[in-house]
């Protein structure tokens, strides 16, 4: 890496790999151990939400939490910031 690298704008491929993995691994972990229908449920929810708000494909998180023998299905939807188009 020489002086020229300082002017390089594009992120390194290792950084891209790391960010892609962070997202996919987190997504797959949240579906793990839960019911088989979770991925499909997530996809359909995303479709419904996108009819009304143009959210990012990664904006919908579905988690199964286990507490004291009870299972709680948890959804979270991150809405886009005003005036900023979503990445997806």
């Amino acid at each position: 890496m020489g002086l020229l690298a300082l002017f390089r704008r594009t992120p390194s491929s290792a950084n891209i790999a790391r960010e892609r993995l962070r997202i996919i691994v987190q997504q797959e972990r949240s579906a793990r151990g839960g019911p088989d229908y979770l991925p499909l449920l997530r996809r359909e929810l995303l479709e419904v939400i996108r009819k009304y708000v143009n959210v990012d494909p990664t904006a919908v998180q579905v988690n199964v939490e286990r507490e004291d023998g009870q299972e709680v299905l948890e959804f979270s939807v991150a809405l886009p910031e005003k005036g900023r188009p979503p990445a997806g």
Binding site: M1, S12, S13, A14, N15, A17, R18, L21, R22, V25
Partner: peptide, 17 residues
């Protein structure tokens, strides 16, 4: 290759997993 940004580092992989 880690130094040139072509390969994820030990810290990256450790952090993800």
């Amino acid at each position: 290759r880690v130094a040139t940004g072509e390969m994820m580092s030990v810290a990256d992989v450790k952090d993800i997993l």
